[in-house]
Amino acid sequence: MTRDQVAQGAGATGELTAAQQEHEELPATPLTPAQAFDALYTFCAPALVRQTYLLTGRRELARESVERAFQLAWQRWPEVAVDRDPASWVRIMAYEYALSPWHRLRPRHRNPDPPVADPPDRALMAVLLKLPPPQRRTLLLYDGVGLDLPETAAETEASTPATAYRLMNARAAITARLPDLADPSELHERLALLASTQRLRAAQPPAVRTGSERRARFWTRAAIAFTVALIGTTALTLRTAPTHYEPPVPPGAEVQGVPPRVGQGPLSEAEESLRDKLRESMLSGPERLAPVGR
């Protein structure tokens, strides 16, 4: 092989290497909104269902809360996609929906779910559900999810001292009932174990997106129907409303100069004679008139 061939081979090899490097440096193909949503859902939904179960103690409500949170995220995807922490955004919405006090008015959520089979897990679940919702949420975020205190305060929309106070009260309540969970690391492991023992499955991402779009269409049509009804009612009111001012009828006034009503006085002799004559006549009327011959 001559030197020129070696040089040509080296040049060809160099061009191929540069092409490969250029191909490797090209940015990856951006995901579509549906693909990005599905990736976020696949990554966050299973753990979020278990967290909301610890928050509510109800399996169906936990799945429903996560689905509603992701449906809302899909409706506001341009906002969620640019958020610095989309998982935190969805978690906040799921927790807010799960802790809504209106669920107690729904018939299917009036009866509690069957208790956990394991006695230690059942005791821990009972203590968690007896905590006030703000303390339960703070404990789950800090000792369950593993957020630090400022992040927990930001998600619960409370100050850092208030969040620390809630956390201490929640830990004290759990330690009073379960002394073996006084260590925060042990509490974290028990919470993770309790959540993992439940067979909780989230819906598929396409089903969540379809449900979100269906719900958005329903509320859009409802808003349009309400607007049309309001416009029709306003038009009917304008059509039937009076176009000029009609003064009210004044109250009645007493008329002067009218003689008062008096009772009937005694009959005169002529009136008494006429009365007697009428009484003596036939009740059916006077007799038939007949010509009298002369």
Rank of each mutant, 00 (worst) to 15 (best):
P120F: 06
V80L: 14
E60Q: 13
T56L: 06
V80F: 03
L147G: 00
C44Q: 14
I92F: 03
P250Q: 09
D83F: 02
A47K: 10
D118M: 02
I224V: 14
T52N: 15
G211H: 09
R275M: 07
L238C: 03
A94Q: 01
A7W: 06
I231R: 02
L187E: 03
T156I: 09
D183N: 12
A153P: 07
P107D: 04
W219N: 09
Y165K: 14
Y165R: 15
E213H: 07
P286S: 08
T160L: 08
D83K: 02
G285R: 05
H188D: 11
P259C: 11
A222D: 04
R122K: 05
L278M: 09
D85R: 13
T243D: 15
Q8R: 14
V82E: 15
T17R: 11
P248M: 14
A45N: 04
T220I: 07
I224Q: 00
P107K: 11
T2D: 12
A18Q: 07
G211I: 08
R59Y: 04
E22D: 07
A170L: 08
G232T: 15
L54T: 01
S268T: 12
I92P: 00
P184I: 13
L99A: 14
E246N: 09
T52K: 02
F226E: 10
A182W: 03
A162C: 01
P114W: 06
P132Y: 03
W102F: 08
T32S: 15
L191C: 05
G232Y: 01
R3I: 09
A229E: 03
R108Q: 13
P247M: 02
F70S: 06
